[in-house]
Design a protein around this nucleic acid. Structure first.
Lengths: 166, 166
DNA sequence: GTCAGTGCAAACTTTTTGCAACTAC
DNA sequence: GTAGTTGCAAAAAGTTTGCACTGAC
């Protein structure tokens, strides 16, 4: 599915959602949806705010962004993540399911795919619960930080040993 | 392993961690660890703050709680979750691995166990990454909210249909 | 004695809220 | 016309920071 086709489809889904739930179809809402579906990867409200001003020459307030994002989440067009300090969002229609690995040291987030994981999680039987979507976050150290930490550890060990020998 | 034994063990692990990393062993830090390991389930900083005052008659500032929690996370004695608005924490030594299902409507978080999930995730091969721990969050609707939403949807549909008929 | 750790309050960041103005229906 | 939305600014909530004091080493 090409880019424009996706944008048209999500627009349609959003329209349906708004109608079905008795919300108004304001130009702000569609403009926000449009920008979000032209962003690859994660974004936070602040980034979105700046992109809106930049790309669309269409200013909306942060309050509206927060309001609209909630609608988009309920319409299953956006997912919310909470790594780091501020909430991160991501489009989710026609995106391949992916998982996140987060470096606890430098905070870097990368994505990976795994058919097997996807299947097992999707098939998990839940009691008293209707699954909508899920997030798997793998925490650990990226190669770079892992190396740095080992170095630091060694250094400290040496210092400790030297103290004991004194 | 009984409750007191766990507390003693984590105390020991924490002591080792502090020594190894050149941190001081302050009474505040041990008091915090102790309280955390007497809490079942999730807690946030505010709850912890109040529990400290209540149960221990030992007041520590929020700043110290934040500082200490970071140490405990690095020592692998506590994990951080980010559902809802404030960060949630949880003891993790000698806790069975479990996953979380979160109701997107009422925010209720419940836990479940799954050997299969645990194995598959633990065995996932990651590129350039050293896995420390992971979190799986399943989002959806709990039975109660699911029912409520269906009702609301029906009501709105009826209203929409009535309008069209007018 | 020294410096990491603490308490406190102020600062900062992110998100929510109240209200007047606007506009989709 | 009416009520749902928006923008703005103020407030709230959560977390971090700076500084003087304390106490673990």
């Amino acid at each position: 599915m090409d880019h424009q086709h996706v944008k048209d489809t999500v627009r349609q889904i959003f329209t349906e959602y708004l109608s079905l739930n008795g919300h108004r179809k304001t130009p702000e809402r569609y403009a926000i949806l449009d920008i979000i579906y032209s962003i690859d990867g994660h974004f936070d409200i602040d980034t979105l705010y700046m992109l809106m001003a930049e790309r669309k020459k269409f200013r909306v307030s942060r309050a509206t962004l927060y309001n609209t994002i909630i609608l988009l989440i309920n319409a299953n067009l956006v997912v919310k993540h909470q790594f780091g300090n501020s909430s991160q969002y991501e489009k989710c229609y026609s995106q391949g399911t992916h998982h996140h690995q987060i470096c606890t040291q430098c905070g870097k987030v990368s994505e990976f795919h795994s058919e097997e994981l996807q299947q097992v999680i999707g098939n998990t039987k839940l009691k008293n619960f209707r699954l909508a979507h899920y997030s798997l976050y793998i925490y650990g150290l990226c190669t770079k930080c892992s190396r740095a930490k080992t170095m630091k550890q060694k250094k400290l060990n040496n210092q400790n040993n030297q103290k004991k020998e004194k």
